[in-house]
Design a protein around this nucleic acid. Sequence first.
RNA 1: GCGCCAGUGGUCCAGUGGUAGGACAGUGGCUUCCCAAGCCACUAGCCCGGGUUCAAUUCCCGGCUGGCGCACCA
Length: 596
Amino acid sequence: MSGEGERLAELAKRRGYFFGATEAYGGAAGFYTFGPQGAALKANVEDAWRDRFTVREGNFEIEAPTIMPEPVFEASGHLDGFDDMLVACPDCGESHRADHLLEDNTPIEDAESLPLAEVEDLVADHDIRCPTCGGDLADEAVTQFNLMFETNIGPGSSTPGYLRPETAQGIFVEFPRIKEYARNSLPFGVTQIGRAYRNEISPRKSIVRTREFTQAELEQFVDPERDDPHLDSVADVEVTLYPATEQHDDGGEYVETTVGEAVAAGTIGDPWIGYFVGIAQEWYETLGVDMDRFRFRQHLAGERAHYAADCWDAESEVDGDWIEIAGFAYRGDYDLSKHADHADDDFTIFREFDEPRDVERAVVDPDMSVLGPEYGSEAADVASALEELADRNPAAFDGETVTVSVGGETRTVDTDVAGFRIEERTINGEHITPHVIEPSFGVDRTVYTLLAHAYNEDEVDDETRTYLSLSPTVAPTDVGVFPLVSNVPELVDRAEAIVDDLRRAGFSVTHDDSGSIGRRYRRQDEVGTPFCVTVDRDGLEGDGPDTVTVRERDSGRQVRLPVESLSTELDAVMDGDTSFDGLVAAYDAVTTDAGS
RNA sequence: GCGCCAGUGGUCCAGUGGUAGGACAGUGGCUUCCCAAGCCACUAGCCCGGGUUCAAUUCCCGGCUGGCGCACCA
């Protein structure tokens, strides 16, 4: 079961995809460095994401800080909600969530919100036992573990800050500015690609679960009553769904359907979620994810954050496990409302009514020259009580006098002193808090999925050939260029000239003239370079224009084409405008021992 | 965090109470007109700290890192 992952990890180390960081100092769990190939692959994934989810959707990309001051996370709920209360069993050493133990064994609900000391007392009072071995937890300390990395902003510790635990937080915080940029009109989407940090208790599974990782997130801000996605554009996209209702202990059935049908049938509860699921399906496919090892899984009710109406994960199967590579959540107005409560800024959008509305409203305009002398310092309170009463019960002003209660005392005011009247006003609209649909992509996990799904082993002449069948759209190196043999100066020189030309044309090129040609092909196979160009003597000695051979990575097939057409044809094949078969048909196939 | 297992050139492994050997990879050279060929030469290693010992890569303890299981993954 771990074979695939181990072989991939080994190749990743050797070929510069990724490796444990700071190994020279013993390393630190949960941190990885992307090597030259990995960094390029990741950049290609990010670029592809940007093309699809920012540029093509007409969204706005921002780049907010990774460190933000404490109040941001008080508002977002991460300071409290990101805490785990752990208690360790003195007998068997198991650590358990103290709040969960209380909730499971007592009528107490939401134990997570209780102070640490109280939880400690409650554990003792209720004689909570270790669920693993039955050990006595009464005298054990309950420790707080917050998954956020803490730091100080500036000297001293007066301004605590935290590394953001999710990339998107900056989008919510900066919403007041961004909405101005968006000219106060919904819907609009804001994206951010960047690092997020979680001090995981136990990072595992290679680069799948790390303490520092990259997310590509989109916050789609919508008017829940007016804005609909362009569902038509993805209605026919076929998807494999794994709805909550199918997720039993003994497995369940996948639902093979289309986005349009899934939304119509209510399998996917929200059309925006459906829309992004459709886009994501297509996007992953173009990246080269093996769609037979890919599904959308709906969150179970208990798994969902309390504010999320519906939530689906994109999952890929790697190394025998399903891992989450993206999440699609309908978050309602949760995030913006939280920031509105905690911050001074305005997190709403003004929505105009279709037609201005004339409304009648009861208002008061108390005569303070009367109330002031009469009630002194209490006058202002009386006035606001009148205001409140007018709004609540206009009929109270029908008589000669009106009575309000201020500070427990009854105060009677002449109606004409209160200045009661019915005001007619024209209201053009209202302030609403936009709802948010959040597609959130794990970039590192996507990279890992691409590598795992691209990993192949062939038997060639009783030898194992390892190659990464990465799609040309993401492959970190586009093309390898070699002289067929390295002791013929004309071939070496020509190859170098071609390298230069191709790099000038924008290709990522590797040049290699060491060892035999077969060895060089194998190197590029392991890196996943889609095409290799080889300069041979036949190509120089012909009567016509110079030619080179182009080899396709997965099949080993070769085609001979003129040097002048090389970069054009490579471009066409990489963009998918033509296939390698197309090249073979248009030019001369080359027969070799290995190619077929 | 807990338990089990592991840590030896770049990678994968062997081995030893007296500081190590292979395979593959890599570099330079020869050779080579199409898939890890061959020949010569070379580079490069015992995770860290403490203990036991005349002597520790080896034994013991602790740490770190990795794999698996448990827990965790808002």
